[in-house]
């Protein structure tokens, strides 16, 4: 019973924080774990990400949504060091993180999963889990040669891994190759493995993609669990039912920028969000005359431009 009350407390605390928060993009949060400023990533002429300012509240579940091609995954890659931002800066727990290589980002407590699940196929499930543990003595070549240096720590790691496997109901698969798991089980394994790092911020890139409905409920439960254990969650997702169900706050991206923020209950009725998903004039059909006028305007503009070019 006690655990349940604290769980509800955390949910309530997160809800209380966001209660009267303005719905503007980049709104300041009372206790941000991650603060992002002016992150820009261009691929040739295409600006994939251009985020002016965004803050992620500690201890809450924040969803990052947006139409396809909005730059959500690219933004994730910038923050975790898997891709280099053209400019911008961000701090995690007050520490600057721009230009930090991915393995150091993870060591600092900011761990991500991938949209296309990366199970290490020809390693067993338990070996996948053990790999996640940090500061392993046996990961040094010279110490690896003498098992006495690392077997003690290995036992502790294995115990922690077995606990997590039980929680994620993967303990029956312990000795199987990760490559033999189903898609949903791989998602579970990837999440459990990320927890072996003991992160403060868990970043999930589409945790529900390709998971069958039966497993969805269990995955949702696990994500909520993370908050209850005091972790912060930032996740990218397309499934709005899931976003409504588990997130405390929603950030909406479109064409590389953050266009709106708000609580999950009302965010989908926000005009800017509807525009981004369906287009600004989705409910205003163009008449023929309006179309003609627009075309003429565009032509006139082009002609003026050409004239300008030839005069140079």
């Amino acid at each position: 019973m006690h655990a349940e009350t604290t769980a509800n407390d955390r949910k309530a605390a997160a809800t209380a924080v966001f209660k009267d928060m303005p719905r503007e993009p980049g709104v300041p949060k009372p206790d941000p774990i991650l603060v992002v400023d002016n992150v820009v990533r261009r691929f040739g002429g295409l600006t994939a990400v251009d985020v002016e300012h965004v803050e992620i509240q500690r201890g809450a579940i924040t969803a990052l949504i947006g139409p396809n091609g909005a730059g959500k995954t690219t933004f994730f890659n910038q923050l975790t060091g898997f891709d280099t931002a053209d400019s911008g800066s961000w701090t995690f727990n007050g520490r600057a993180m721009n230009g930090v290589p991915p393995h150091k980002v993870a060591r600092n407590g900011m761990v991500r999963t991938f949209q296309l699940t990366k199970a290490l196929s020809r390693l067993t499930v338990i070996e996948n889990m053990r790999l996640g543990a940090q500061r392993q003595k046996g990961e040094n070549f010279w110490r690896a040669l003498v098992p006495a240096f690392w077997t003690g720590q290995e036992d502790e790691i294995t115990e922690r891994a077995d606990d997590l496997l039980r929680r994620f109901k993967l303990d029956a698969k312990r000795e199987d190759f990760a490559g033999s798991l189903s898609g949903g089980q791989r998602k579970l394994l990837e999440m459990a493995r990320a927890l072996m790092v003991e992160p403060e911020l868990v970043m999930l890139d589409e945790p529900m993609a390709g998971v069958n409905p039966a497993l969805t409920q269990s995955l949702l439960g696990h994500v909520k669990d993370l908050r209850e254990q005091g972790m912060t969650v930032l996740f990218v997702e397309h499934d709005m039912d899931m976003v409504r169900d588990i997130s405390d706050w929603v950030i909406v991206m479109a064409q590389g920028t953050v266009i709106a923020e708000g609580p999950p209950s009302t965010i989908m009725s926000d005009e800017r969000v509807v525009d981004a998903y369906l287009g600004a004039h989705h409910d205003a059909p163009l008449s023929d005359s309006e179309l003609q006028a627009q075309l003429q305007d565009a032509e006139a503009e082009l002609e003026a431009e050409i004239e300008e070019e030839t005069q140079k």
């Binding site: 991915p102 990366k118 290490l120 196929s121 070996e127 990961e139 690896a144 690392w150 790092v197």
Partner: peptide, 29 residues
């Protein structure tokens, strides 16, 4: 035999499977 059954060897085998996953777990690939 010794290094491949140790955590060091585990990192190598994991790199063979997927480098990015290993990076995301805090190892200097």
């Amino acid at each position: 035999y010794l290094v491949m059954k140790s955590p060091w060897g585990r990192v190598l085998k994991a790199i063979r499977e997927d480098e990015d996953a290993v990076r995301s777990l805090g190892k200097n690939v």
